[in-house]
Design a protein around this nucleic acid. Structure first.
Lengths: 191, 191
DNA sequence: GTCTATATTCAGATAGAC
DNA sequence: GTCTATCTGAATATAGAC
Protein backbone atom coordinates (compact mmCIF):
# COMPACT_ATOMS: atom_id res chain seq x y z
CA UNK A 1 0.00 0.00 0.00
CA UNK A 2 1.26 3.39 -0.91
CA UNK A 3 0.92 6.42 1.26
CA UNK A 4 1.97 9.81 -0.02
CA UNK A 5 2.58 12.68 2.30
CA UNK A 6 1.28 16.13 1.50
CA UNK A 7 4.83 17.29 0.91
CA UNK A 8 5.39 14.56 -1.66
CA UNK A 9 2.19 15.56 -3.41
CA UNK A 10 3.39 19.14 -3.48
CA UNK A 11 6.75 18.17 -4.92
CA UNK A 12 5.20 15.93 -7.54
CA UNK A 13 2.87 18.71 -8.63
CA UNK A 14 5.88 21.01 -8.85
CA UNK A 15 7.83 18.49 -10.89
CA UNK A 16 4.98 17.99 -13.30
CA UNK A 17 4.50 21.71 -13.81
CA UNK A 18 8.20 22.44 -14.20
CA UNK A 19 8.36 19.75 -16.83
CA UNK A 20 5.41 21.28 -18.69
CA UNK A 21 6.31 24.94 -18.53
CA UNK A 22 9.96 25.10 -17.57
CA UNK A 23 11.37 26.15 -14.22
CA UNK A 24 11.39 29.90 -14.73
CA UNK A 25 7.92 29.91 -16.26
CA UNK A 26 6.49 27.87 -13.40
CA UNK A 27 5.24 30.19 -10.69
CA UNK A 28 4.74 29.32 -7.06
CA UNK A 29 1.18 30.50 -7.65
CA UNK A 30 0.66 27.93 -10.40
CA UNK A 31 1.91 25.12 -8.19
CA UNK A 32 -0.30 26.28 -5.33
CA UNK A 33 -3.25 26.49 -7.68
CA UNK A 34 -2.73 22.90 -8.72
CA UNK A 35 -2.63 21.96 -5.05
CA UNK A 36 -5.82 23.92 -4.49
CA UNK A 37 -4.49 26.27 -1.86
CA UNK A 38 -2.96 29.72 -1.64
CA UNK A 39 0.63 30.57 -2.58
CA UNK A 40 1.69 31.18 0.96
CA UNK A 41 0.97 27.56 1.87
CA UNK A 42 3.66 26.38 -0.50
CA UNK A 43 6.20 27.63 1.97
CA UNK A 44 5.03 25.05 4.46
CA UNK A 45 6.91 22.49 2.39
CA UNK A 46 9.89 24.35 1.03
CA UNK A 47 11.79 27.47 1.91
CA UNK A 48 12.31 28.69 -1.64
CA UNK A 49 11.55 27.81 -5.22
CA UNK A 50 15.18 26.88 -5.70
CA UNK A 51 14.76 24.09 -3.16
CA UNK A 52 12.48 22.22 -5.52
CA UNK A 53 15.00 22.24 -8.32
CA UNK A 54 17.92 21.32 -6.11
CA UNK A 55 16.03 18.49 -4.51
CA UNK A 56 15.13 16.72 -7.74
CA UNK A 57 18.36 17.46 -9.55
CA UNK A 58 20.77 16.18 -6.94
CA UNK A 59 18.63 13.18 -6.12
CA UNK A 60 18.42 11.95 -9.72
CA UNK A 61 22.03 12.80 -10.40
CA UNK A 62 23.06 10.60 -7.50
CA UNK A 63 20.97 7.79 -8.91
CA UNK A 64 22.90 7.87 -12.18
CA UNK A 65 26.21 8.04 -10.35
CA UNK A 66 25.34 5.05 -8.17
CA UNK A 67 24.42 2.96 -11.18
CA UNK A 68 27.58 4.02 -12.99
CA UNK A 69 29.80 3.32 -9.98
CA UNK A 70 28.42 -0.17 -9.48
CA UNK A 71 28.89 -0.98 -13.14
CA UNK A 72 32.45 0.34 -13.22
CA UNK A 73 33.31 -1.63 -10.07
CA UNK A 74 32.16 -4.89 -11.60
CA UNK A 75 34.45 -7.35 -13.37
CA UNK A 76 32.52 -7.28 -16.63
CA UNK A 77 34.34 -6.51 -19.87
CA UNK A 78 34.07 -2.93 -21.13
CA UNK A 79 31.45 -3.68 -23.77
CA UNK A 80 29.20 -5.33 -21.23
CA UNK A 81 29.73 -2.37 -18.91
CA UNK A 82 28.72 0.07 -21.63
CA UNK A 83 25.65 -2.01 -22.33
CA UNK A 84 24.71 -1.86 -18.68
CA UNK A 85 25.20 1.89 -18.52
CA UNK A 86 22.88 2.30 -21.49
CA UNK A 87 20.44 -0.05 -19.79
CA UNK A 88 20.53 2.06 -16.63
CA UNK A 89 19.79 5.21 -18.65
CA UNK A 90 16.82 3.56 -20.33
CA UNK A 91 15.46 2.33 -17.03
CA UNK A 92 15.85 5.57 -15.10
CA UNK A 93 14.44 7.53 -18.03
CA UNK A 94 11.48 5.17 -18.15
CA UNK A 95 10.79 5.29 -14.43
CA UNK A 96 11.47 8.95 -13.78
CA UNK A 97 11.10 10.80 -17.09
CA UNK A 98 10.26 14.15 -15.49
CA UNK A 99 13.25 14.10 -13.20
CA UNK A 100 15.52 13.21 -16.10
CA UNK A 101 13.92 16.01 -18.13
CA UNK A 102 14.97 18.41 -15.38
CA UNK A 103 18.54 17.15 -15.65
CA UNK A 104 18.56 17.87 -19.34
CA UNK A 105 16.65 21.14 -19.43
CA UNK A 106 16.69 22.95 -16.10
CA UNK A 107 20.06 22.53 -14.45
CA UNK A 108 21.09 25.96 -15.74
CA UNK A 109 18.57 27.52 -13.39
CA UNK A 110 20.45 26.42 -10.30
CA UNK A 111 22.08 29.24 -8.38
CA UNK A 112 25.50 29.31 -6.86
CA UNK A 113 26.93 27.46 -5.10
CA UNK A 114 24.62 24.63 -6.15
CA UNK A 115 25.18 25.42 -9.80
CA UNK A 116 28.91 24.77 -9.60
CA UNK A 117 28.34 21.66 -7.51
CA UNK A 118 26.01 20.28 -10.12
CA UNK A 119 28.28 21.10 -13.04
CA UNK A 120 31.05 19.28 -11.21
CA UNK A 121 28.84 16.20 -10.78
CA UNK A 122 28.13 16.30 -14.48
CA UNK A 123 31.81 16.51 -15.34
CA UNK A 124 32.55 13.62 -13.02
CA UNK A 125 29.95 11.53 -14.76
CA UNK A 126 31.45 12.29 -18.13
CA UNK A 127 34.88 11.36 -16.82
CA UNK A 128 33.53 8.03 -15.62
CA UNK A 129 32.16 7.33 -19.08
CA UNK A 130 35.48 8.33 -20.62
CA UNK A 131 37.23 5.96 -18.26
CA UNK A 132 34.99 3.12 -19.38
CA UNK A 133 35.69 3.86 -23.02
CA UNK A 134 39.43 4.14 -22.45
CA UNK A 135 39.44 0.76 -20.71
CA UNK A 136 37.50 -0.75 -23.61
CA UNK A 137 40.04 0.52 -26.10
CA UNK A 138 42.85 -0.88 -24.03
CA UNK A 139 41.05 -4.23 -23.80
CA UNK A 140 40.72 -4.05 -27.58
CA UNK A 141 36.96 -4.48 -27.50
CA UNK A 142 36.43 -0.89 -28.70
CA UNK A 143 37.92 0.86 -31.69
CA UNK A 144 40.56 3.55 -31.31
CA UNK A 145 38.06 6.37 -31.15
CA UNK A 146 38.70 9.85 -29.81
CA UNK A 147 37.68 9.63 -26.15
CA UNK A 148 36.21 13.11 -25.86
CA UNK A 149 34.17 12.80 -29.02
CA UNK A 150 32.96 9.30 -28.22
CA UNK A 151 31.97 10.30 -24.69
CA UNK A 152 29.97 13.26 -25.96
CA UNK A 153 28.36 11.29 -28.79
CA UNK A 154 27.32 8.36 -26.63
CA UNK A 155 25.97 10.39 -23.71
CA UNK A 156 24.22 12.73 -26.11
CA UNK A 157 22.68 9.88 -28.08
CA UNK A 158 20.78 8.64 -25.03
CA UNK A 159 19.71 12.04 -23.72
CA UNK A 160 16.39 12.05 -25.60
CA UNK A 161 15.11 8.94 -23.83
CA UNK A 162 13.15 10.78 -21.14
CA UNK A 163 11.11 12.43 -23.87
CA UNK A 164 10.00 9.13 -25.35
CA UNK A 165 8.71 8.02 -21.97
CA UNK A 166 7.30 11.37 -20.85
CA UNK A 167 5.08 11.39 -23.92
CA UNK A 168 3.88 7.80 -23.90
CA UNK A 169 4.31 5.84 -20.73
CA UNK A 170 2.81 2.65 -22.08
CA UNK A 171 3.59 2.29 -25.74
CA UNK A 172 7.34 2.11 -25.25
CA UNK A 173 8.97 -1.21 -24.45
CA UNK A 174 12.16 -0.37 -22.53
CA UNK A 175 13.80 -3.71 -23.22
CA UNK A 176 13.35 -3.52 -26.97
CA UNK A 177 14.37 0.13 -26.95
CA UNK A 178 17.56 -0.76 -25.13
CA UNK A 179 18.33 -3.48 -27.67
CA UNK A 180 17.93 -1.04 -30.55
CA UNK A 181 20.13 1.61 -28.97
CA UNK A 182 22.85 -0.81 -27.97
CA UNK A 183 22.87 -2.16 -31.53
CA UNK A 184 23.33 1.36 -32.93
CA UNK A 185 26.01 2.49 -30.49
CA UNK A 186 27.92 -0.79 -30.73
CA UNK A 187 27.66 -1.39 -34.45
CA UNK A 188 26.51 1.80 -36.13
CA UNK A 189 24.06 2.09 -38.99
CA UNK A 190 26.15 0.70 -41.83
CA UNK A 191 25.37 -2.75 -43.04
CA UNK B 1 35.08 44.81 -45.72
CA UNK B 2 32.39 44.20 -43.21
CA UNK B 3 29.89 46.76 -42.08
CA UNK B 4 27.54 46.02 -39.24
CA UNK B 5 24.44 48.01 -38.62
CA UNK B 6 23.47 49.12 -35.16
CA UNK B 7 20.56 46.71 -35.27
CA UNK B 8 22.86 43.81 -36.03
CA UNK B 9 25.08 44.82 -33.13
CA UNK B 10 22.05 44.88 -30.89
CA UNK B 11 20.93 41.45 -32.01
CA UNK B 12 24.40 39.99 -31.59
CA UNK B 13 24.60 41.35 -28.07
CA UNK B 14 21.20 39.83 -27.36
CA UNK B 15 22.25 36.48 -28.79
CA UNK B 16 25.41 36.41 -26.73
CA UNK B 17 23.57 37.26 -23.52
CA UNK B 18 20.76 34.80 -24.14
CA UNK B 19 23.36 32.11 -24.68
CA UNK B 20 25.08 32.99 -21.42
CA UNK B 21 22.10 33.43 -19.14
CA UNK B 22 19.16 31.84 -20.93
CA UNK B 23 16.27 33.66 -22.58
CA UNK B 24 14.09 34.17 -19.54
CA UNK B 25 17.00 35.26 -17.38
CA UNK B 26 18.17 37.77 -19.96
CA UNK B 27 16.52 41.11 -19.33
CA UNK B 28 16.04 43.87 -21.85
CA UNK B 29 17.89 46.02 -19.35
CA UNK B 30 20.91 43.73 -19.46
CA UNK B 31 21.04 43.83 -23.24
CA UNK B 32 20.73 47.62 -23.22
CA UNK B 33 23.50 47.83 -20.64
CA UNK B 34 25.80 45.84 -22.89
CA UNK B 35 24.94 48.23 -25.71
CA UNK B 36 25.68 51.15 -23.41
CA UNK B 37 22.29 52.78 -23.68
CA UNK B 38 18.99 52.84 -21.82
CA UNK B 39 16.37 50.07 -21.97
CA UNK B 40 13.95 52.17 -23.93
CA UNK B 41 16.37 52.37 -26.85
CA UNK B 42 16.17 48.64 -27.32
CA UNK B 43 12.73 49.14 -28.76
CA UNK B 44 14.20 51.08 -31.66
CA UNK B 45 15.34 47.74 -33.06
CA UNK B 46 12.66 45.30 -31.99
CA UNK B 47 9.05 45.53 -30.89
CA UNK B 48 9.24 42.89 -28.18
CA UNK B 49 11.68 40.53 -26.52
CA UNK B 50 10.00 37.65 -28.29
CA UNK B 51 11.10 39.11 -31.62
CA UNK B 52 14.72 38.38 -30.81
CA UNK B 53 14.07 34.73 -30.14
CA UNK B 54 11.85 34.27 -33.18
CA UNK B 55 14.30 35.95 -35.47
CA UNK B 56 17.25 33.74 -34.59
CA UNK B 57 15.30 30.53 -34.23
CA UNK B 58 13.49 30.60 -37.56
CA UNK B 59 16.54 31.86 -39.42
CA UNK B 60 18.81 29.07 -38.21
CA UNK B 61 16.10 26.46 -38.56
CA UNK B 62 15.71 27.42 -42.18
CA UNK B 63 19.43 27.04 -42.68
CA UNK B 64 19.32 23.44 -41.50
CA UNK B 65 16.29 22.71 -43.64
CA UNK B 66 17.95 24.16 -46.74
CA UNK B 67 21.02 22.03 -46.25
CA UNK B 68 18.93 18.94 -45.64
CA UNK B 69 16.73 19.58 -48.70
CA UNK B 70 19.69 19.99 -51.00
CA UNK B 71 21.27 16.81 -49.72
CA UNK B 72 18.07 14.81 -50.04
CA UNK B 73 17.54 16.11 -53.60
CA UNK B 74 20.98 14.94 -54.70
CA UNK B 75 21.65 11.60 -56.37
CA UNK B 76 24.15 10.44 -53.75
CA UNK B 77 23.67 7.10 -52.04
CA UNK B 78 22.06 7.20 -48.60
CA UNK B 79 25.29 6.73 -46.68
CA UNK B 80 26.90 9.64 -48.48
CA UNK B 81 23.79 11.71 -47.80
CA UNK B 82 23.95 10.93 -44.10
CA UNK B 83 27.60 11.88 -44.08
CA UNK B 84 26.74 15.20 -45.67
CA UNK B 85 23.98 15.89 -43.17
CA UNK B 86 26.42 15.28 -40.34
CA UNK B 87 28.89 17.52 -42.12
CA UNK B 88 26.30 20.28 -42.35
CA UNK B 89 25.56 20.02 -38.64
CA UNK B 90 29.24 20.28 -37.79
CA UNK B 91 29.70 23.28 -40.03
CA UNK B 92 26.64 25.22 -38.89
CA UNK B 93 27.46 24.44 -35.26
CA UNK B 94 31.00 25.68 -35.82
CA UNK B 95 29.99 28.86 -37.57
CA UNK B 96 26.94 29.77 -35.50
CA UNK B 97 27.27 28.04 -32.16
CA UNK B 98 25.10 30.54 -30.28
CA UNK B 99 22.25 30.28 -32.73
CA UNK B 100 22.38 26.51 -32.57
CA UNK B 101 22.45 26.72 -28.78
CA UNK B 102 19.19 28.63 -28.96
CA UNK B 103 17.70 25.87 -31.07
CA UNK B 104 18.62 23.32 -28.45
CA UNK B 105 17.86 25.27 -25.29
CA UNK B 106 15.42 28.11 -25.85
CA UNK B 107 12.78 27.06 -28.37
CA UNK B 108 10.40 26.30 -25.51
CA UNK B 109 10.22 30.00 -24.75
CA UNK B 110 8.48 30.82 -28.01
CA UNK B 111 4.86 31.84 -27.62
CA UNK B 112 1.92 30.79 -29.73
CA UNK B 113 1.48 30.73 -32.62
CA UNK B 114 5.24 30.75 -33.24
CA UNK B 115 5.74 27.92 -30.81
CA UNK B 116 3.57 25.54 -32.79
CA UNK B 117 5.13 26.68 -36.03
CA UNK B 118 8.57 25.93 -34.72
CA UNK B 119 7.61 22.54 -33.32
CA UNK B 120 6.22 21.67 -36.73
CA UNK B 121 9.50 22.67 -38.41
CA UNK B 122 11.31 20.44 -35.97
CA UNK B 123 9.04 17.50 -36.73
CA UNK B 124 9.48 18.06 -40.43
CA UNK B 125 13.23 17.93 -40.02
CA UNK B 126 13.01 14.67 -38.12
CA UNK B 127 10.80 13.23 -40.83
CA UNK B 128 13.38 14.18 -43.45
CA UNK B 129 16.04 12.35 -41.48
CA UNK B 130 13.75 9.35 -41.14
CA UNK B 131 13.18 9.40 -44.88
CA UNK B 132 16.92 9.33 -45.48
CA UNK B 133 17.36 6.38 -43.14
CA UNK B 134 14.44 4.50 -44.68
CA UNK B 135 15.93 4.96 -48.14
CA UNK B 136 19.27 3.70 -46.91
CA UNK B 137 17.70 0.57 -45.51
CA UNK B 138 15.91 -0.03 -48.78
CA UNK B 139 19.16 0.48 -50.68
CA UNK B 140 20.70 -2.05 -48.31
CA UNK B 141 23.48 0.31 -47.25
CA UNK B 142 22.03 0.63 -43.73
CA UNK B 143 21.03 -2.11 -41.31
CA UNK B 144 17.41 -2.89 -40.55
CA UNK B 145 17.25 -0.50 -37.60
CA UNK B 146 14.09 0.91 -36.06
CA UNK B 147 13.53 4.20 -37.89
CA UNK B 148 12.19 6.18 -34.95
CA UNK B 149 14.96 5.07 -32.62
CA UNK B 150 17.70 5.59 -35.19
CA UNK B 151 16.41 9.06 -36.06
CA UNK B 152 16.36 10.10 -32.43
CA UNK B 153 19.75 8.58 -31.66
CA UNK B 154 21.51 10.13 -34.64
CA UNK B 155 20.02 13.62 -34.29
CA UNK B 156 20.62 13.53 -30.57
CA UNK B 157 24.20 12.37 -30.96
CA UNK B 158 25.13 15.54 -32.87
CA UNK B 159 23.22 17.99 -30.70
CA UNK B 160 26.15 18.71 -28.38
CA UNK B 161 28.32 20.08 -31.19
CA UNK B 162 27.46 23.75 -30.63
CA UNK B 163 28.79 23.44 -27.11
CA UNK B 164 32.20 22.26 -28.29
CA UNK B 165 32.50 25.30 -30.53
CA UNK B 166 30.91 27.81 -28.17
CA UNK B 167 33.55 26.96 -25.59
CA UNK B 168 36.62 26.87 -27.79
CA UNK B 169 36.38 28.50 -31.16
CA UNK B 170 39.94 27.70 -32.17
CA UNK B 171 41.04 24.40 -30.69
CA UNK B 172 38.42 22.34 -32.51
CA UNK B 173 39.11 21.12 -36.01
CA UNK B 174 35.71 20.69 -37.68
CA UNK B 175 36.99 18.33 -40.35
CA UNK B 176 38.58 15.93 -37.92
CA UNK B 177 35.56 16.17 -35.63
CA UNK B 178 33.30 15.26 -38.52
CA UNK B 179 35.46 12.26 -39.37
CA UNK B 180 35.28 10.98 -35.80
CA UNK B 181 31.52 11.38 -35.58
CA UNK B 182 30.84 9.80 -38.94
CA UNK B 183 33.03 6.85 -37.94
CA UNK B 184 31.02 6.38 -34.74
CA UNK B 185 27.58 6.72 -36.30
CA UNK B 186 28.46 4.57 -39.28
CA UNK B 187 30.41 1.84 -37.55
CA UNK B 188 29.77 2.11 -33.78
CA UNK B 189 32.34 1.62 -31.05
CA UNK B 190 32.88 -2.12 -31.26
CA UNK B 191 36.05 -3.32 -32.82
C1' DG C 1 -2.29 24.16 7.60
C1' DT C 2 -4.90 27.70 5.92
C1' DC C 3 -5.99 32.27 4.92
C1' DT C 4 -5.47 37.79 4.11
C1' DA C 5 -2.45 41.26 3.45
C1' DT C 6 1.65 43.08 2.15
C1' DA C 7 6.69 43.98 1.46
C1' DT C 8 9.93 44.02 -2.10
C1' DT C 9 11.79 43.66 -6.31
C1' DC C 10 11.89 43.58 -10.95
C1' DA C 11 10.25 42.70 -15.50
C1' DG C 12 8.45 44.34 -20.35
C1' DA C 13 6.90 48.10 -22.58
C1' DT C 14 5.35 53.07 -23.74
C1' DA C 15 5.01 58.36 -23.73
C1' DG C 16 7.09 62.29 -24.76
C1' DA C 17 10.88 65.74 -24.60
C1' DC C 18 15.41 66.79 -26.75
C1' DG D 1 18.49 57.78 -31.49
C1' DT D 2 18.78 59.05 -26.91
C1' DC D 3 17.14 60.18 -22.56
C1' DT D 4 13.75 60.59 -18.11
C1' DA D 5 9.80 59.09 -16.22
C1' DT D 6 6.30 56.03 -15.66
C1' DC D 7 2.66 52.47 -16.35
C1' DT D 8 1.40 47.92 -15.46
C1' DG D 9 1.77 43.64 -14.09
C1' DA D 10 3.77 39.89 -11.87
C1' DA D 11 6.97 37.33 -9.15
C1' DT D 12 9.11 35.44 -4.62
C1' DA D 13 8.63 35.62 -0.08
C1' DT D 14 7.08 36.91 4.80
C1' DA D 15 4.02 38.37 8.85
C1' DG D 16 0.49 37.33 11.52
C1' DA D 17 -4.35 36.00 12.53
C1' DC D 18 -7.48 31.85 12.76
Amino acid sequence: MKTTTRREDFLQASLQLIHEKGFKATTMRAIAERMDFDVSNSYNYITSKQDILELFLFRISQEFHHAMDNILASSYAADEKLKQVISAHVQVSAQKPYEVALMVNEWRNLKEPKYSEYVELRSQYERKMSKLLRAGIKEKVFKQVDIKVATAVILSSIRWLYDAFAKSKNTMNPVELERQIVALIFGGVMR
